[in-house]
């Protein structure tokens, strides 16, 4: 393997992801400033809350990055004779690095905003991390794994559409949509009636949030599963 070309490809991907992160953090900073300003003017300081959802939004950003990057890189880097294995490794490495940097900066930004507000702002920023794991660096660690997992999911969905025929794509779109919007709620409504299953789900969720390591290990495994499936799809993918 020609490492210099792989390293150059990783640099290219990291540079592009850094641009996306810079735009994201800039927008979040403006949003925080605007919300803090508005809320401080309207409410008593003790009651003020920010529901920025910053960690959810960065997860969504990584999901989109996963969707966009893999096809673009497959086409672009194939021009320079990089194999699919190298393209896959490049994206995996670049997403990991971007997730580490992005989540740490995002956490620091959030902490910075809270400190600047002098403790008058109570943060309700995340569904998964901050309220559960109060230490900021633990939250950041969980965010990193979550972002990486979502990037892998985005990559998998992108590659699925890339490999499927037009008919297959339509089937996936409508079938997948119907399954998520109709089938899944129906299934859940049926399954919750089953006592043992309900208990098992409750136990799993309790276990998941009981310790950061549980959370990180679970999403890391899920991310690895998505990555493995993506590899199966990309390894014989034509460049088109």
């Amino acid at each position: 393997m020609n490492n210099s070309r792989l390293l150059a490809a990783i640099r290219f991907r990291c540079q592009d992801s850094a641009n996306a992160l810079a735009v994201y953090l800039g927008v979040m900073l403006l949003l925080y400033a605007a919300m803090a300003g508005m809320l401080n003017g309207i409410f008593d300081h003790d009651q003020t809350q920010i529901s920025g959802g910053s960690e959810i939004s960065i997860v969504i950003m990584f999901f989109v990055l996963g969707i966009v990057c893999i096809r673009e890189d497959l086409r672009h880097f194939s021009q320079y004779g990089l194999t699919r294995r190298s393209v896959f490794l490049c994206d995996l490495t670049a997403h990991t690095l971007a997730a580490i940097v992005g989540c740490l900066l995002n956490s620091l930004l959030l902490q910075g905003v809270v400190l600047l507000a002098g403790g008058s702002i109570v943060t309700l920023t995340s569904l998964f991390t901050l309220p559960v794991f109060s230490l900021w660096y633990v939250s950041a660690g969980c965010s990193i794994v979550l972002c990486l997992c979502m990037a892998m999911l985005g990559q998998l969905i992108s590659l699925l559409y890339y490999r499927l025929s037009k008919r297959g794509s339509l089937l996936l779109t409508f079938g997948g949509g119907a399954l998520l919007l109709v089938g899944l709620p129906w299934l859940i409504s049926r399954l919750v009636l089953l006592e043992p299953l309900r208990k098992a789900c409750a136990m799993f969720i309790s276990w998941l949030f009981a310790a950061p390591l549980h959370f990180i290990a679970s999403f890391l495994l899920l991310g690895l599963l998505f990555a493995a499936l993506s590899w199966l799809l990309i390894r014989r993918a034509p460049v088109k």
Partner: peptide, 18 residues
């Protein structure tokens, strides 16, 4: 292999750039 593909350059009909 990367090493093999790195020894050629194909000017294809399509634009493969972002």
């Amino acid at each position: 292999e990367d090493a093999a593909l790195g020894r050629l350059f194909l000017m294809g009909e399509k634009n493969l750039f972002p």
